[in-house]
């Protein structure tokens, strides 16, 4: 039963991931579509960060925000992503 669930989950994850690989060569997008698609990474980053970050500690949304704030500062200072991640983890660790 669980194997059936895993196979099913695998298929419905693989198919949407794979279809674009096959169709993109057959399509020539207009400039505005390209602009749209090029903006997707930044939009996706935004949507993935907020409001999800509030639920790092579900009962205390400010913890996630503070961790995020530290990440913003460290990243703005030009630190490598790994150090940004470590800094945010430490912040949350010290606050909880």
């Amino acid at each position: 039963m669980i194997f059936l669930i895993i196979i099913g989950m695998s298929l419905v994850t693989m198919i949407p991931r794979m279809i674009p690989a096959f169709i993109v060569d057959k399509l020539q997008f207009r400039d505005w579509v390209n602009n749209w698609l090029n903006a997707i990474p930044y939009a996706a980053l935004g949507a993935l960060i907020f409001p999800g970050i509030l639920s790092v500690k579900p009962d205390q949304p400010h913890i996630g925000l503070l961790g995020g704030g530290v990440a913003i500062v460290l990243s703005y200072l030009g630190l490598n992503v790994i150090l940004v991640v470590i800094g945010a983890i430490l912040t949350v660790f010290l606050l909880t």
């Binding site: 996630g64 995020g68 990243s75 030009g78 912040t91």
Partner: peptide, 24 residues
């Protein structure tokens, strides 16, 4: 628990660490 909870911020921090340099 405390360790795994603190780690929960990791991916968000990574997304931020990717986004900020692009914004700059």
């Amino acid at each position: 628990d405390k360790v795994s909870q603190s780690m929960g911020i990791a991916l968000y921090a990574m997304f931020i660490g990717l986004l900020i340099p692009s914004i700059k």
